[in-house]
Design a binder for these strands. Structure first.
Length: 373
DNA sequence: TCAACTAACACGTTTGAACGGC
DNA sequence: AGCCGTTCAAACGTGTTAGTTG
């Protein structure tokens, strides 16, 4: 609430004025805000680092276009989200959470062995957050070993009562990890939020696998799918499936996407941008995530430059009253492009510092969080 | 007609209780 | 009594497939 002190990740107490609260998406995404200025402020808050475990596996899927099955009763992710943390205060309590963020404003379809934009995205389902079962725990605990979100499940059932993450099929998402300094689940909303995401974790939610390459990769790596490996009862069906080369497919996707978008919706930015740099379009989906906190984009390291925030200067964004559909159409939907981040030697998370200073109602958007309480 | 979705299925993995040995 | 390792059955998770839905 306004007027209440909030703890920084470093444990220092900051005056409310240091947490600029503004629920206006236009303000949060103000192109005129110097990034370096934001970054400087963020680094003062602490130096929490997050690393994606099994990053190579994620990349393997990312190269061909990760698909995640969603079912009525909930399906685990594979690869599952697993991270490691450093830079936390050993004795301070933290809560770790994950939510899923739409990559763009499109619904996709699998046509002729490639993903194409089908239509505008459906209205976003109830946004839920998965709370790591160890939460809250001290920083020393979180840094002791990697954190697994193995048991997090995805569902397409908007009436789900089990607290699973609700997603739309044929839409693209990426997991976003929140590190919140808080002594208990009840005080989470008063803590500072630091958010991380990884470009290679973008996936398309599906009710049935579309790309046979994804199926094969899952069978090869997921122990639960061992029964379907070569020599199994069903593996023959995979071998019949024709495949196009990655490069050709990527070009086809790009071409089809641009073709579809052309016709008044495609901006010059979309034409200029290489698809590999447009995976992460978080800055273009402000309407998707209406928390009342200042959103600061801070690149974690130079190695992650390809994952930098969008250059707003190239975007002809109106100052306010942004029509979600129009905004989203300004962003070229990436046909799961090969990520340039594969060149990075480290897999440190793309780091946003959300110095959260909001009221409890903001968190009421997280049913799972309520369940935990 | 067709793409998307659902539920049943077979198979392998995981989990945890029960047990025995030290 | 407590700890450790093994066994085994039940529960769980997986992709496939045929049928259903819109």
């Amino acid at each position: 609430p306004e007027g209440t002190d909030a703890a920084s990740p470093t444990g220092s107490r900051l005056r409310p004025s240091e947490f600029v609260v503004n629920s206006s998406s236009a303000s949060r995404l103000n192109p005129s805000l110097p990034l370096s200025q934001s970054a400087a402020h963020s680094y003062q808050q602490g130096c929490i680092r997050m690393t994606l475990e099994n990053a190579e596996l994620w990349k393997s899927f990312h190269r061909i276009g990760t698909e995640m099955i969603i079912t009525k009763h909930g399906r685990r992710m594979f690869p599952h989200c697993s991270i490691s943390l450093s830079g936390l205060q050993p004795l301070a309590n933290y809560v770790i959470m994950v939510d899923m963020v739409p990559v763009d404003g499109f619904k996709y379809k699998w046509k002729k062995e490639q993903w194409e934009v089908a239509e505008k995205a459906e209205p976003q389902p109830p946004r839920r957050t998965y709370l790591h079962p160890d939460s809250p725990a001290v920083g020393a605990h979180w840094m002791k070993k990697s954190l697994s979100f193995l048991k997090m499940k995805l569902t397409n059932n908007t009436l789900d009562q089990h607290g699973h993450i609700i997603l739309h099929s044929m839409h693209r998402y990426y997991p976003r990890f929140h590190v919140i300094q808080a002594d208990s689940l009840y005080t989470v909303c008063w803590g500072a939020v630091q958010t991380f995401s990884f470009p290679e974790t973008v996936f398309t939610a599906v009710t049935a696998y579309q790309n046979p390459k994804v199926t094969k990769l899952k069978i090869d790596h997921n122990p639960f799918a061992k029964g379907f490996r070569e020599g199994g009862t069903h593996s023959h069906s995979l071998q019949r499936m024709p495949c196009t080369s990655q490069s050709v497919q990527a070009e086809q996707n790009k071409a089809s996407t641009l073709k579809l978008l052309n016709g008044g919706h495609l901006s010059s930015w979309a034409l200029e941008q290489d698809s590999s740099e447009s995976i992460h379009s978080e800055p273009l989906e402000p309407q998707e995530y209406d928390y009342s906190y200042e959103e600061q984009m801070v690149p974690a390291s130079a190695a992650y430059q390809p994952y930098r925030s969008v250059e707003y200067g190239k975007l002809p964004l109106p100052s306010s009253d942004v029509d979600p559909a129009q905004t989203l159409f300004r962003s070229p939907p990436p046909p799961h492009p090969p990520s340039t981040t594969e060149q990075a030697t480290q897999h440190q998370g793309y780091y946003h510092s959300h110095h959260h200073h909001s009221n409890a109602s903001d968190w009421s958007q997280h049913p799972l969080f309520c369940y935990s309480c």
